[in-house]
């Protein structure tokens, strides 16, 4: 769709709508943004799986050695607890490894995981550049910038989401707050914070990997160990973002999902275009 209207186009409308045939669509996502969006799925999966395998070798969260098992790793405790309490997991062969067997490449794979982690990390950095290029080229970056009204608008959206299930159950109408922007305040906060998290992940990753060369970077995050904690929790930012993101995309409908594949949306406001015509 490279021959379509540029996002920065300020030309006057030439539409004959609604008198002529054709499908009215809006161009939502630049193809570089779409590509980088979908490439993030396997890359982030690879980073998380290999990252937890790396975590196994030197867990961030430890306690004093267990007198019976000698275990110090909190993740191992969680695995043992899951095998003891979750139905169907009582006969799991190695409860201490449950977390690592289900959420990583596996325990005892530090060297193999590090190789994959860095391959994915380079792809992640490259993909980030592609994403930013797509945002700049398509002009989509403006829609992600925070605004002064965001706090109030975010509260309105929170109220909407909180009330939505109850009104659905009561079969009452519950109106979505109206905004004149591409994204609502919560979406904007999420879509803005994820690239920032990506940047911080890369910075903390380098600080951990090269603490001698990048000692100033490690110091910026509070030292080597603190940089590891940052890196670990930044992973959770992605996970906590992805879960509601996927749920809301499916809840929103086919058009939203399709627009991230094909780039365009048929959700065009008739009134807006008619108004612009005049």
């Amino acid at each position: 769709m490279s021959h379509l209207t540029s996002p920065n186009c300020e030309s006057n409308s030439t539409s004959t709508f609604p008198g002529q045939p054709g499908v009215l669509v809006v161009r939502k996502h630049h193809f570089l943004v779409r590509w980088s969006h979908w490439l993030n799925v396997p890359i982030l999966l690879g980073l998380i799986l290999s990252g937890i395998s790396i975590y196994w070798a030197s867990p961030v969260y430890q306690h004093k050695p267990d007198p019976n098992t000698g275990n110090v790793d909190v993740a191992v405790d969680i695995g043992i607890w899951i095998c003891a309490h979750v139905p169907g997991q009582h006969h799991y062969s190695s409860p201490p490894d449950w977390i690592y067997n289900h959420m990583s490449l596996g325990p005892g794979m530090l060297a193999l995981a590090l190789r994959l982690h860095w391959l994915c990390a380079y792809l992640f950095m490259l993909n980030g550049v592609v994403y930013v290029a797509g945002l700049v080229k398509g002009g989509g970056w403006r829609a992600l910038l925070p605004r002064r009204t965001d706090l109030l608008d975010a509260l309105r959206m929170f109220r909407y989401y909180l009330g939505f299930p109850f009104t659905k159950l009561a079969r009452r109408k519950w109106l979505h707050p109206v905004f004149n922007t591409q994204y609502n305040a919560l979406q904007r906060a999420a879509y803005f914070s994820v690239p920032v998290a990506g940047l911080l992940s890369v910075a903390t990753g380098w600080a951990i990997h090269k603490p001698m060369q990048f000692h100033w970077l490690a110091a910026f995050f509070g030292g080597y160990n603190a940089a590891r904690v940052w890196h670990f929790w930044l992973m959770w930012v992605y996970i906590l973002f992805v879960v509601p993101h996927v749920i809301l995309v499916f809840a929103d409908g086919w058009d939203t999902l399709r627009s991230m594949i094909v780039g365009w949306s048929t959700r065009a406001k008739r009134s807006e275009f008619v108004a612009n015509e005049q």
């Binding site: 769709m1 409308s13 109206v178 905004f179 048929t266 065009a268 008739r270 807006e272």
Partner: peptide, 29 residues
């Protein structure tokens, strides 16, 4: 998720085709 759906939306398939199909055309910005 997107606010635009909450407005007065126009779905592409709502538009009847008369057989004369235009190429891509800017509408308004």
């Amino acid at each position: 998720m997107n606010n635009e759906e909450k407005g007065d939306s126009l779905q592409g398939h709502d538009i009847p085709s008369t057989g004369v199909e235009p190429e891509v055309k800017s509408v308004s910005v």
